[in-house]
Design a protein around this nucleic acid. Structure first.
Length: 859
DNA sequence: GCAAGGTC
């Protein structure tokens, strides 16, 4: 009988490697692919089999709207709730789907080793889809491996207990994806367009909304409001002092503090008049400070932020790296309880020879270690623990600090509790009670490895019950209540966790999101302080529909999709039900938006008032205003139109020239830096490319530089095929780019460092430096079809005989010009270009060819 | 240009 073939798929390459190593006992061969494929022979369900283990890289697909709904201008956000959605490959370049389909060929069995959570279950079905195992062929079997660690024994155990993938859990994730997409995108598009169209100084390109990010922002703003509405109150504290055995000691008042000065003063008088304290009680109490339970992701992130000063994003990246290097266990887990099978001895043993922790660990191994405190078992992965001993020189500084914490926490969980004796001495004077307390540690326990949690020793002088002591002074301290501080990042993480917002893996992303959108700023001590924009948004939701920014919005979604996961409700029924509710909220929100707008009006400046007059509108011939805050744009107050500009550069009026197509005055845009391009553009054409096909013709430009060009990634003059305009690619283009399919165009404002740049890539060519003027002519080289340029050399530096300055020629064929040309980025282009240019070359737009790409390329 | 969830 032919050998069976078994395909196994993990969620990420590192897990595929662990699985293959465990099942093959290290005897596998590995070949490269979209992700590595490990192969070996073994026994599968009693038969000889050939195993192939590979992986995906997280989700294979993500949801989006079909292209018809992608245009913000043409889609009513309300329609998004009922729009179809499509699943497309998350990372098309990785070709994961093709990879899986190829590897599945000839395999009779598929074993799914995705992470054991809902998302993993959903990815199982993505894999099934890609491999073609869903077509019901009875002989092709699908199995699900359930494992909670990548230890060999756990993998072997999972292999012996294969189950079926859980379709309901996968459907719950489908439901969440659709709800999150539709709700988030609809609200985001609506409020972005509404407010960006009205205010000039909103300092965020996108005014986003999301069921996780918005409640997270809500926490920060809530605290801000508590701070701003806080009213300090004065209070008074009575503080008697005594001198006992030569030490001065301040006693605490049983009443703590009083908010009435007269009453406090009265008590002070009573105490002073008495003047003698009597020791009324001395008590001792054994106190216990519990060791920690296992470390989960959220707690790791909190410690990283509050004690190590690492933001969650960075902490996760470091933890991930420590994990892939094998130093710590899987860092994404909700569980704080160790599984019953957990090998404490093995884990401790791994650290036995560690120079930093070896001593602590060996003591635990010989004296016996504690069973960890009970935690919660979320059923995902065990708590985060060290896996392998590391020393300081093996890791970079930050990674070492994080690793140290993981070790300390783990050792702490199996160490004894900390025990101490608390002594309280109580006094009476003038009818009032006071006390002082001392602490003495009897068992350091886990605090020896986590010293920052240690109990402070506080010694008290000796006292006898009934002893009488003279008061040395009685102070009436006046204090004032202080407002709470802004939430620290670590507190925000706690709140998110408590309210079920985000997952261990995504909490960091949401916090990052509200920072990037300029809703909050991270200030000293990693405090999250909301900005004017963040505050205005939340106050706006609060006055229209507070649900929108409350954490319950997430719990509601989670609770609904859990019904799907548990098989209690049908997937599409739940999706329709939830979307219906959000659609209603959305309609109401739009209707009430003016209430929110009133808050924006008070905080931000209307478009019409912001910016400075820069260039004339081609429609009304009045000046338009330049708004420099992102997104940079022009605003015509008369036509009430906004024209977006390329971002992250400077913009100027271009010699009061105007576009022959629409009469708008031209602008010149310059990217920063000595090598930043400068190019003219017409604000109207940039937003509304006038020539059909320019979009597709220059598709490469559109996608490759969209980051720089910003909104619309529109059509600057260097892409314009206008046949006669002086600024189009037809007039300014010189020759084909040696690097790509673009065209080298003259940078019109590059004097005196004249240069050509490619209109599609970063290729840069220096022309004769210091020239007075360089311009393109209408002539072209008879040999290579390159545009003839005219150079007006500087009188002092002219290379021409007799001090002549004017010179006309082809930069490729003319010896003199060619010797003065230098390629900055890109290959030497002389020979190649000559070869490519010869004979065919470019025709000018005015002539037979209007398509600049065809005329410049096509060699 | 948009969400949240994987992972890199």
């Amino acid at each position: 009988m032919a050998q069976q073939k078994v395909l196994m798929v993990a969620e990420k390459p590192s897990i595929a490697l662990s699985i293959a190593s465990a099942l093959s006992r290290g005897q596998m061969s590995t070949r490269r692919g979209s992700t590595d494929v490990h192969e070996f022979d073994g026994i599968f369900r009693g038969f000889q089999a050939r195993f192939k283990v590979t992986s995906v890289i997280g989700h294979v697909f993500s949801v989006d709207f079909p292209s018809k709904f992608q245009d913000w201008g043409k889609t009513n956000p309300l329609d998004l709730f009922d729009a179809p959605i499509t699943k497309t490959e998350s990372n098309p370049k990785a070709h994961i789907c093709r990879h899986l389909s190829q590897e599945a060929r000839g395999c009779g069995h598929l074993v799914l080793w995705l992470d054991c959570d809902r998302e993993g279950e959903n990815i199982c079905f993505e894999v099934i889809e890609c491999t073609g195992f869903h077509t019901k062929e009875p002989r092709r079997m699908v199995y699900r491996a359930r494992f909670s660690s990548v230890l060999d024994k756990d993998i072997l155990k999972a292999m012996d207990n294969l189950v079926e993938p859980n379709g309901d859990e996968a459907l719950a994730v489908d439901a969440r994806q659709e709800i999150d997409l539709k709700v988030g995108v609809a609200f985001t598009r609506f409020q972005t367009t509404y407010f960006q169209g009205k205010y000039g100084n909103l300092d965020s390109r996108v005014i986003s909304y999301g069921p996780c990010q918005t409640p997270t922002l809500g926490f920060c703003v809530q605290r801000h409001l508590q701070i701003t509405t806080f009213k300090p109150e004065k209070f008074w504290v009575l503080r008697p002092y005594i001198i006992q055995n030569g030490y001065e000691l301040q006693l605490e008042w049983e009443r703590n503090k009083l908010f009435d000065e007269d009453v406090a003063t009265m008590f002070q008088k009573l105490v002073m008049e008495d003047g003698i304290l009597e020791v009324t009680e001395i008590s001792e109490k054994q106190e216990n400070k519990s060791r920690p339970s296992g470390l989960n992701t959220v707690n790791l992130l909190k410690v990283a932020s509050s004690a190590l000063g690492f933001g969650p994003q960075m902490a996760m990246q470091m933890a991930e790296r420590l994990y892939t290097q094998g130093f710590i266990s899987y860092p994404r887990t909700e569980s704080t309880a160790y599984p019953s099978s957990f090998e404490f001895k093995g884990t401790l043993g791994a650290l036995a020879n560690n120079p930093t922790y070896g001593n602590d660990v060996q003591r635990l191994l010989t004296d016996g270690f504690q069973k960890p405190r009970v935690g919660t078992d979320a059923g995902d992965h065990p708590p985060i623990t060290p896996m392998r001993s590391a020393t300081e020189d093996m890791l970079d500084r930050d990674a070492w600090r994080l690793y140290q914490y993981v070790c300390q926490h783990f050792i702490g969980t199996v160490s004894p509790d900390c025990k101490y004796v608390r002594t309280k001495v109580e006094f009476s004077i003038g009818g009032e009670s006071f006390h002082c307390t001392g602490q003495h540690v009897t068992v350091e326990g886990f605090t020896s490895v986590m010293p920052w949690l240690g109990v402070n020793e506080r010694n008290l002088p000796r006292f006898m019950k009934g002893e009488k002591i003279e008061v040395s002074k009685v102070e009436l301290y006046e204090g004032s209540t202080i407002s709470p501080d802004y939430l620290s990042e670590s507190e925000v993480i706690s709140l998110m966790e408590k309210n079920g917002i985000g997952t261990d893996a995504s909490i960091a992303v949401h916090i990052n999101n509200i920072c990037e959108r300029n809703y909050v700023q991270v200030q000293a001590g990693r405090k999250l302080v909301p900005t004017a924009l963040g505050i205005t948004l939340i106050r706006g939701y609060q006055c229209i529909d507070p649900d929108l920014c409350l954490p319950d919005i997430r719990s509601f979604i989670e609770q609904q999709i859990t019904l799907v996961a548990n098989g209690q409700m049908n997937h599409s029924h739940v999706v329709q039900h939830v979307l219906q509710q959000f659609k209603q909220k959305f309609t109401y929100f739009i209707k009430q938006i003016e209430n929110m707008d009133a808050l924006f009006e008070a905080q931000f400046s209307p478009l019409a008032d912001s910016g400075r007059a820069l260039s004339k509108c081609g429609k009304c011939l009045r000046y338009m205003k330049y708004i420099s805050v992102q997104p940079a744009r022009m605003y015509c107050g008369t036509c009430e139109e906004v024209y977006y500009l390329p971002q992250k550069g400077t913009i100027k009026l271009y010699k009061e020239l105007s576009c022959p197509l629409d009469n708008f005055e031209l602008l010149i845009f310059s990217l920063p830096g000595p090598e930043g391009k400068s190019f003219p553009l017409c604000p109207y054409c940039y937003n509304n490319p006038p020539f059909e096909g320019v979009d597709t013709l220059f598709g490469a430009v559109k996608s490759s530089t969209s980051g720089k060009l910003g909104k619309g990634a529109g059509m600057p003059c260097f892409l314009c095929p206008h046949p006669t305009c002086r600024h189009s690619v037809i007039a300014q283009g010189v020759c084909a780019c040696p690097e790509c399919s673009g065209t080298l165009v003259l940078d019109p404002v590059s004097a005196p460092k004249w240069r050509l740049y490619c209109n599609m890539c970063s290729c840069l060519v220096f022309l004769p430096q210091g020239a007075h003027r360089i311009s393109t002519t209408r002539e072209r080289c008879p040999d290579c079809d390159t545009t003839i340029i005219e150079v007006d050399f500087n009188k002092k530096t002219t290379p021409l005989e007799d001090g002549a300055t004017l010179y006309v020629g082809c930069i490729l064929c003319d010896e003199l010009l060619h010797s003065l040309v230098e390629v900055k980025h890109g290959k030497s282009f002389s020979r190649r270009m000559r070869g490519r240019g010869a004979g065919r070359g470019r025709g000018r737009g005015g002539g037979k060819r209007v398509d600049p790409k065809m005329s410049f390329r096509d060699f």
